[in-house]
Design a protein around this nucleic acid. Sequence first.
DNA 1: TTTAGGGATAGTA
DNA 2: TACTATCCCTAAA
Length: 867
Amino acid sequence: MFYCGLLSFFTIIVLSDCARCEKRQDVESVPSYVMDYAPMVHLHTADAYRPASIEEHLKHTQPEVNYTSVSESPSPLTLGNLSSLNESGGEDVYLTSIKNVEDDPDWLFGVEPNNSGKTEGAFSCAVIVNDKGSGLVDAFYMYFYSFNFGGVYLDFLNVGNHVGDWEHNMIRFQDGVPQYIWYSQHSNGEAFAFDVTEKYNGTERPIAYSANGTHAVYAIDGDHAHAIPNLNLDNGIVEDHSDKGPLWDPTLAAYYYSYNASSETFTAYGNDTPVDWLYFKGHWGDEQYKDSNDLQECFLDIDGLCKYTNGPTGPIDKQLDREEAKTVIEAIAASANSGPPTVPAHILELRRRIPDIPPSKTRERQVDHKLIIVEVYRPTSLDFINRPNPVEPQSVPQKHPLNGTPQFAKPPSHSFDGFLSGGTDGEIRRSPKRRKSGDGKSLDLPKLPVRQNAKRLRIPPTLSGLHQPPPDAGLLPSISTEQLVAPPKHGNSLDDRPQGPATHVSHEAPSKRPANGLKKARKSKRNRWSDEETACLLKGVARFGIGNWTAILKCPDYQFDRRTALDLKDRFRVCRPEEYLRTKQPTGTNVPRSNLDGSETGENKSKSRKTDRKSNGELHELGITQPFHQSGRRKRHKYTAEEDEAILRGFEKFGNSWAAIQADESLQLGHRTSTDLRDRMRTKYPKEYAEAGLAPRPEVFPKPPQRNAEDRQEEPSAQREENDESQQSAQAPTREENESAPNRSRKTVSAPFLPDDNVFFGAPFDNDDMDTTRITLDRDILQWAGQTKNGTIDPLNSLKLPAPTTISGFGPPHNSGATGSLPSVADITAADRGYRTDHLELPSLIMGHFDAESRPGQVLGFDELLS
DNA sequence: TTTAGGGATAGTA
DNA sequence: TACTATCCCTAAA
């Protein structure tokens, strides 16, 4: 922190390195294996509530007992004096938000991890090491968030929100070797043999998935059934959702302690690390709001189904000295045979009022002087842990859910040591269902379940490539008359897409068409956003996050009128300027929704028309009650001169071994990914990149060539210079160059451009006539293609494209007859890549490489086109 | 596991 | 609206 403060003007590289310095200084005494095996946490992409500064949290809360401020509390409250509150009420103290939490104060949202995974400036993790002797060490990785959003159940029930949220992983080591790992989930959790868990990027560090809003920690991503605290519903009704969102490395901004269980004392590893706060016995958030509180909503007035619940207690209450296996197993076994079941009153009440709620599935037991609720039917925790893999049969080799690597193939052979006795936010809830193996005291841990949707559809080899425009597809004339529209200069935008299959022949009156068959470009008319479209956009952003424009655009739930992803972004920027700007602000800053109510005051004043901005009230009317969250995209970081220099040096040293460049410590590029480095090299040093035999990035949509000197003269000189430079440095290599380029595994074949004096399809036309838009093909075209083989062209064998049946003039091609359905190459592609399922897109005709002597009316083979 | 190819989005003019 | 830089996804080696 000290160094960061002094050198704040330094670059990201330095800051990043500083983060490592901090870590090293603070953890010198921490057992190395505690660091080496520390979890990496995938936050949920859509989660608005990120890890938060433990210290900062205190600045925005005040201690209350029974909804009344504690008069004798120290001021200010700090991590160094927090435990003094134990004198004022102990467990009854609630650190209560000073401001209305529904005004979305900044601190509630925590801090987005930076590129290094660090919550910059926010210590949001406490690592607590309990050395139990005889080589047995439990390491707790406590994660702190300032707010827990309980989620919406049954589509209408928002319950379980609370200020403050502590979750954790615990790893049990034997002689420095990790044996088991525990993931805390609500009032319970799961344990796995350490070896079977997913690891981070080639390291030994296990991955933990933090659920959206609740921050429950899971071993795999995807959906996870769980229970509303104190209420059990059928499996699947209530779910946590986790995904591979931003990576958080909790160790980069953490406090480190050892814990002596016999004396119940904490000792900091770092000299300046505050310790006192760990002894605080109270709650880290507000006490459950009373029914009379405007913020509180209890479903059917049932106390167990309230929107806001108590804030949690802290690390000291997480049972830091967990029991040995035998004790726990015996205790649970005993629990299964004791007493009649007791259904909590609020569940009975709910059931009485809602008859179709499933019958009671809980039983309460006293175990180790604690009340536990046993879930009779729903498999959770122990049941889950101790059965063989519940998802995949044992005989089926396990595959990695994402890349097929058999990381989880190891059979579950580890015995369960039963450190499950703790790790709860309150009472312990366990299932009596369990399967013992061996002597009944040792229980097998399962393999991790494989994500249900892990299978990835593949494109059949013969059609592979159809999902991407063939590099030379531009040689073929457009086959869609509806696309024969001279586009704007760079008409590659998605709003050029027709809404239906594009192979349909236009029925437009011929008189409206110029003689060359091309429609004149329509003057772009302003396409105003309708209220319906705007509502769709806002709902889409609430659902997919700021930045997932394409996902919103493609979602069939939302209707847009010829919009592009860019349009969506621009519109959102107009409707909610401050929230959009939040994406551009430094990590960790949040614009509270209270400042987004449409009023234009102070710094929030926006240029956008007030009528276009959407107030909180309007959002509420759309059912949007939560702040918009970010997409999982990393924040952009401009490359510094130092980085560029280092990349160039690295490239000279390692060539295109980007991973080696990244890993070279002397280059200080570890904060960029290897692909980032490739991208930057490709962008910044196209010449060097190309000279090394690497294919420059092809134009996504080839621009029309400069046809003659006149055109060039009209071009602004600066632009021309730029083009000249880029042509020299980044121009696609010629075929010869391609063939001579060494060590190139993939080559880019660029569409050849017509020399200046060539004739274009026999008809003169100006720039406006040139079609640079994508052709959008209906998937039926493939069937058509299959039917259109003749002696000259086999489209599927050449470009896998239908060839035009005529090239005379530019009238509608004779391809309108095929309307049958092709099952699904498009679907396969779309399903695989998340694209629309009804179209395939190809670049359209730009400048055909036609010889002036080509004969109108003749079908040319692809080879002829190339020749 | 790494790189290549190229699409998507952010940011700016 | 246009354009580039950066980030991202995925096929292929």
